[in-house]
Structure formats: structure tokens, C-alpha cells
């Protein structure tokens, strides 16, 4: 009996301490000190409208933009998820074949063997904001043809938006697709 009453009291105390106070304390400090990150790293365009989050990928289907990774949820940021295909799953193999065919149709200049796998594979979250720098470069010929922006300029753009490994060793070099396309959007508007 004693254990039961102690447990009830312990539960209430820790629901308040860990459940409420801890959460509110972290929220308070974060909002005061680093509101940009705490609110989801949202970015605005020059008109001051919210165009997305630096950390959350967006769907790009226009051939005149750099495309991100395959997302079975079509970059629905209200949720997250992937189809969880096993390496032996026939549906996964046919999806890859389809993507390869689509690549050949949209990018006749670049052989599909040169396309890194990140462009042909579903990301883990369905919201991956990045592609590898090589995956951005193989899209240059298509975008040059669609927009008329010179390949060299596109290549510089990619370089500007390539983030290296953290501390030089952690993770992989990558390109933020949304930030890259925001610059491309401005360039397209000028040309």
C-alpha cells in the first residue's frame, strides 16, 4: 500500500518537473536566445514572405529547377515517411527503373550511369533538403537548356551552396536544394 501512495505522489511530482517545467524551461531559453532555430529555421524571400524552411526539402518538378530526392510523400511537411522498401522488394526495383527511364527522357545529355544513387533512392524522411554536389552537377545540362543560364554560372551557383563536411570530417558534402533554387529563381527572373 505504501508503494502505491508513494508512486502516485512520485508520478505527480515528476509529471510536473520533467513533463512541464523541463519542457517550458528549454522552450523559454531557446525562444529568448535563438528564436530562428527554435521556430524551425524558416526563410523568407525578398518580399518578406515565408518560402520554406532551410531544413525541410520541397518538391521540384519544373525541369528548369534543380530536383531533390525521391519522396513518396511528395515533401508533405505536415508528416514524414518513406515506403520502407527492402533491398529485395520488386516494387523498389521497378520504381528505380522508372526513375532511370525518366532521367533518360529529361536528360539526354547525361548517361544514367553517371547519376549518383541519392537521386534514384527515396530518402529516409521524405523531406531530405539536400542532394550530393555530384547530383546537382549532373543536372546542369538540362537546366542550361531550359533556362538559358550558362553552365559555368550554374556550376558556380552549386559551388556557393555546397556545404562541406562539418569540422572537415563529419557527414558528407551536400547542396541545399531549396537555397540553390532560390538563387536560380532570381537568376531566372533577371534573364
Amino acid at each position: 500500500m505504501k508503494i502505491i501512495t508513494i508512486t502516485l505522489r512520485v508520478s505527480i511530482v515528476f509529471m510536473l518537473l520533467c513533463g512541464v517545467l523541463y519542457n517550458l524551461a528549454v522552450t523559454g531559453v531557446s525562444q529568448a536566445v535563438m528564436p530562428f532555430q527554435a521556430n524551425g529555421s524558416l526563410i523568407k524571400n525578398e518580399q518578406g514572405e515565408l518560402v520554406g524552411s532551410k531544413l525541410i526539402g520541397q518538391a521540384f518538378t519544373d525541369p528548369g529547377y534543380f530536383h531533390g530526392r525521391i519522396s513518396s510523400i511528395e515533401y508533405n511537411g505536415a508528416g514524414s515517411g518513406s515506403p520502407n522498401y527492402a533491398p529485395s522488394n520488386p516494387d523498389m526495383l521497378s520504381r528505380v527503373k522508372e526513375s532511370m527511364e525518366q532521367w533518360k527522357a529529361e536528360n539526354p545529355q547525361v548517361p544514367v550511369e553517371e547519376v549518383p544513387m541519392d537521386l534514384l533512392a527515396n530518402s529516409g524522411s521524405g523531406l531530405d533538403p539536400h542532394i550530393s554536389p555530384e547530383s546537382a552537377r549532373v543536372q546542369i545540362p538540362r537546366i542550361e537548356k531550359e533556362t538559358g543560364i550558362a553552365a559555368s554560372e550554374l556550376s558556380h551557383m552549386i559551388e556557393r551552396h555546397t556545404e562541406g563536411r562539418e569540422f572537415g570530417v563529419l557527414g558528407e558534402p551536400r547542396v541545399n536544394v531549396l537555397e540553390l533554387n532560390l538563387e536560380l529563381q532570381q537568376a531566372r527572373a533577371q534573364s
Binding site: P87, N122, S123
Partner: peptide, 14 residues
């Protein structure tokens, strides 16, 4: 498929 990066299905680029 070019798998120089390793198996990227279900993984994140970063």
C-alpha cells in the same frame, strides 16, 4: 545504378 555512395535507399544525404 551508380552506387559509389553506398546504398542510399532510406538514407539522408547529410
Amino acid at each position: 545504378v551508380n552506387q559509389m555512395q553506398g546504398s542510399m535507399e532510406g538514407k539522408e544525404v547529410r
